[in-house]
Amino acid sequence: MVFAYCFLCSSRKKRKEISLSTLGNTIMQVSYATLLKATDGFSEANLIGAGSFGSVYKGVLDEDDKAQLVAVKVFNLLRHGASRSFIAECEALRNIRHRNLVKIITVCSSVDFHGNDFKALVYEFKDNGSLEEWLHPPTGTEVLRDYVPKKLSLLQRLEIAIGVACALDYLHNHCETPIVHCDLKPSNVLLDNEMTSHVSDFGLARFLSQVTSNVSAIQSQTSSVGIRGTVGYAAPEYGMGSEVSTNGDVYSFGILLLEMFTRKRPTDNMFGDSLNLHNFVKMAIPGRVTEIADAPFLQGGTNENPNQCSARIHKVEVCLSSIFRIGIACSADSVRDRLKNINDAASELHSIRNTFLG
């Protein structure tokens, strides 16, 4: 088992690198020294992100005379829950394969040169970063050098949303034991060079019994980590002590979908006790969708005549209304009123895309 293996590897007496067979026969551990070199000493210049349990660095692995760009997630083991998060991610990723899930390349469970425990996961590097970076460009002190504004078309966002929905459908409905991601948000959706979406960060993932995947007990050793999620994206019932369920991921997906097409975070200052992202969108349907949608959706070509412009805007309005309705159905506060299966959202989004392209 991965848990037993990781426990043994955390012992400072056992320093010899061995294979992580539970992650697949072809996946071997990589040494601390190799990752140190790959990331130029985990330099700040290679830091591409930070989360609850650690930091992510861009690196270059040299294997078999081939250089491969990678993302190295280094766990801050001083942080409570980080070690369990590493185990959870190993467990979640060892048997899952899907085009819209991030792919693990190798792992490191060893010690650093000072004798401290060291754990890291190495993933394929995604050239276009996270969805968060595309939806919410840095401002003020966050502005990066040589920053180029990023734009996503309506169709690109729709394709990204479909990819995320398909990934969740796979985790919920097509794995031997259903998996709940528990932390779906824009920063955990990575985009490759073709703008295909990949769901990442399984540090809070939970395994559910096949019989009670929507209502009951967590069957994983990682259950003691506790449910945190992210404010604004975590399902309301989690805050009231409810067990993890696939319904929680459906809620997070609904919020993500609404955010993608309004470009408003669920934690935006405009939202308070009486108004949230869900209600903000719900009140605008059907007549005011263009008022709440991200402005670029309505921009047309310079050579459009009035009739073409009107037809295009109508087509966009119909598309947005359909997308927003799915987002609202997924993000209902009450589990009873919420869309029950992410597969239904994926199917509807596919139909919307086909209609939009037709």
Rank of each mutant, 00 (worst) to 15 (best):
E124L: 14
I104K: 07
R94P: 03
R94N: 08
G140T: 11
T106E: 03
L93Q: 10
P137Y: 02
V148D: 13
I96N: 11
L101T: 12
S110G: 05
P149K: 07
S110H: 08
K126W: 03
L135V: 10
C108G: 04
K150T: 13
L93P: 05
K150H: 12
Y147P: 06
E142Q: 08
T106A: 06
R99S: 13
T141C: 09
I104Y: 04
K150W: 10
P149S: 12
K119F: 04
G115M: 04
N116I: 00
S153Q: 11
K103F: 09
W134I: 13
L152Y: 07
S130W: 06
S110E: 08
S109I: 00
E124N: 13
R97L: 01
D146G: 06
L131H: 09
N128W: 07
R97D: 02
L144F: 03
K151W: 14
F118P: 07
K126T: 00
V107P: 04
L144H: 01
F125Q: 00
L93V: 07
E133W: 13
F125W: 04
E133D: 15
V111Q: 11
H114A: 09
F125K: 04
T106G: 01
V122E: 05
L131F: 14
L154T: 07
L93A: 06
D127K: 15
V143R: 02
C108A: 01
Y147M: 15
D117Y: 05
L155I: 15
F125M: 02
V107H: 06
T106K: 08
I105C: 11
E124F: 09
L135H: 03
S130K: 04
T106F: 05
V102R: 10
I105H: 07
P138F: 10
S130E: 02
Y123Q: 10
D146H: 13
P138D: 09
G115C: 00
V107Y: 06
L93I: 10
I96F: 12
F113A: 09
N95F: 09
N116H: 04
T141P: 02
N128G: 10
I105S: 14
N116S: 05
W134Q: 11
K126I: 03
P138W: 09
R94K: 14
W134L: 12
V122T: 05
L152C: 08
Q156R: 14
F113C: 06
H98R: 13
